[in-house]
Simulated assay, not measured.
Amino acid sequence: MTSTETSSLILHGRRRAFLRLRDGVLLLAEDGVERRIPVAAIERIDVYGPRGR
């Protein structure tokens, strides 16, 4: 079972970027920079490209 507070799910992006959910915050790591995005601050998510899901 996966907790909503800490997820083992890791989404991989381009150029070694990845996104992980931890303690109600999305951790986005890209080019050696880690950004913390509170889930409550996300209004919508747009996905582009032929392989977008």
Rank of each mutant, 00 (worst) to 15 (best):
M1H: 09
T2G: 01
T2R: 01
S3V: 00
S3E: 04
S3P: 03
T4W: 07
T4D: 09
T4F: 08
E5Q: 14
T6K: 15
T6L: 06
T6W: 05
S7N: 10
S8H: 09
S8W: 06
S8Y: 07
S8N: 13
L9M: 09
L9E: 11
I10E: 11
I10P: 01
I10L: 04
I10H: 00
L11Y: 06
G13N: 12
G13Y: 13
G13F: 15
G13R: 05
R14F: 14
R15C: 10
R16S: 12
R16D: 14
R16I: 00
A17W: 02
A17T: 13
A17C: 13
A17L: 04
F18C: 09
F18Y: 15
F18R: 02
L19Q: 09
R20Y: 03
L21D: 07
L21M: 15
R22K: 15
R22G: 05
D23Q: 14
V25W: 08
V25M: 08
L26I: 01
L26P: 03
L26Y: 07
L27C: 07
L27M: 07
L27G: 04
L28T: 00
A29D: 14
A29I: 04
A29T: 15
D31P: 00
D31Y: 01
G32P: 03
G32T: 01
G32F: 01
V33K: 01
V33H: 07
R35Y: 14
R35W: 13
R36H: 15
I37H: 10
P38L: 04
P38E: 07
P38F: 06
P38K: 08
V39I: 15
V39S: 06
A40K: 14
A40L: 11
A41P: 02
A41G: 07
A41S: 15
I42W: 12
E43G: 08
E43Q: 14
R44F: 15
R44M: 09
D46H: 10
D46M: 04
V47F: 04
V47W: 03
Y48C: 08
Y48N: 11
Y48Q: 10
Y48T: 13
P50W: 02
R51H: 12
R51Q: 11
G52C: 03
R53F: 12
R53S: 11
